[in-house]
């Protein structure tokens, strides 16, 4: 067993883990159920979380690697997500919802890096987040409507 210290969603966490425990499994054990597994090959983006503010696939990171780092899941970023996810809901583009947490986390990362992205920049940044339900266009419309509403607010 290895001792790890992680700042998880703002709280300091100490735990003893197996060396081969993946971050995704560590997080789900700690009750972060928003983190989903969709594949075993780091292909789908469902398990995206932020490590020191940068998006990572938690299925491809050992929990031990997170020792000494800050990890954020959607459980810890509810307010930041609430700012824009309603616009996606208005498009009906949540659908089955299973890919939503990973896609929302990566969108948070995108908007922190680039608050005013073009449609092509949004597509490129989120390309690793698979969705089988929506065909992606509704998600894009939702994000676009959010950005437009921000602009209108800034102008007025």
């Amino acid at each position: 067993m290895i001792e790890i210290k992680i700042k998880l969603n703002g709280k300091n966490v100490v735990d003893y883990i197996e060396a081969d425990l993946l971050l995704i499994d560590f997080l789900r054990k700690r009750g972060c159920y928003s983190v989903k597994r969709g594949c075993e090959t780091a292909s789908c983006g469902l398990c995206t979380v932020l490590m020191d503010g940068k998006p990572v696939l938690s299925c491809s990171v050992l929990a031990a690697r997170a020792d000494g780092h800050e990890v954020q899941t959607l459980e810890g970023l509810q307010e930041e997500a609430k700012a824009f996810v309603g616009f996606i809901a208005d498009q009906g583009a949540d659908q089955c919802g299973f890919c939503n947490p990973g896609f929302v986390m990566n969108t948070i990362a995108l908007l922190r890096e680039n608050p005013d992205p073009t449609d092509d920049e949004i597509r490129a940044y989120l390309a690793g987040n698979l969705c089988r339900c929506t065909g992606y266009e509704g998600q894009l419309r939702g994000i676009r409507n959010y950005l437009d509403s921000c602009k209108r607010q800034n102008e007025s």
């Binding site: 159920y33 928003s34 899941t73 996810v85 809901a89 208005d90 009906g92 929302v104």
Partner: peptide, 21 residues
Amino acid sequence: KSVRKKDSMQLLLGKPVYMDD
């Protein structure tokens, strides 16, 4: 009418709603 799905905010905010959750 294009009303929001009843479960949309739960899904988009990653709440535990699936079998394994």
